[in-house]
């Protein structure tokens, strides 16, 4: 397996898990991702959003939910610049930026996404930066979500 990371691009962490291993709760996210849409599980009882999809609402313990579409933009909540590769074969994608993004249209905590932030200058990224989602369609089932600086 080592060495099998495919063609690496600086700043972009490769898709090492190419299957979604989805269940009925996560499948709607991956279905939307295929169409370049971001949906987020949402409690229809109290309105709390949560990520990743899970059985119970942490706010009201309801199991009722739907998957509204979000604008796909958000704010960098925290991040790190990975300069030293976890594996020598990953050296070519370093440095890359990965972090925590709070999604516009949600309450923030509880519905954050943990993502690779691409198309950016690693030394210029700051907490509070506005970003937008971009999906890479890797396999029939896996569309990897990443974020990039919001243009304009």
């Amino acid at each position: 397996m080592a060495g099998d990371f495919g063609n690496l691009e600086r700043g972009k962490f490769p898709t090492i898990l190419k299957e979604t291993h989805a269940d009925s709760l996560t499948q709607p996210f991956w279905d939307a991702a295929k169409e370049d849409r971001l949906v987020c599980q949402h409690c229809t009882n109290c309105g709390t959003f949560r990520m990743p999809p899970s059985p119970f609402c942490f706010n009201c313990q309801s199991r009722d939910h739907d998957y509204p579409e979000l604008p796909g933009t958000g704010t960098v909540y925290s991040f790190t610049v990975v300069r030293h590769p976890l594996h020598p074969d990953l050296a070519e994608c370093c440095p890359y930026v990965s972090g925590v993004v709070e999604l516009d249209g949600t309450q923030g905590a509880g519905a954050r996404m943990l993502v690779n932030i691409i198309d950016c200058d690693p030394d210029a990224v700051r907490i509070g930066d506005k970003v937008e989602i971009v999906f890479e369609h890797v396999t029939e089932e896996m569309s990897t979500p990443r974020f990039r600086p919001l243009s304009g």
């Binding site: 090492i16 996560t26 990520m51 990975v82 994608c93 890359y96 990965s98 943990l114 993502v115 896996m142």
Partner: peptide, 9 residues
């Protein structure tokens, strides 16, 4: 796992 395995964290 599919929500975190590919993010580099």
């Amino acid at each position: 796992a599919a929500f975190t395995a590919n993010n580099g964290l």
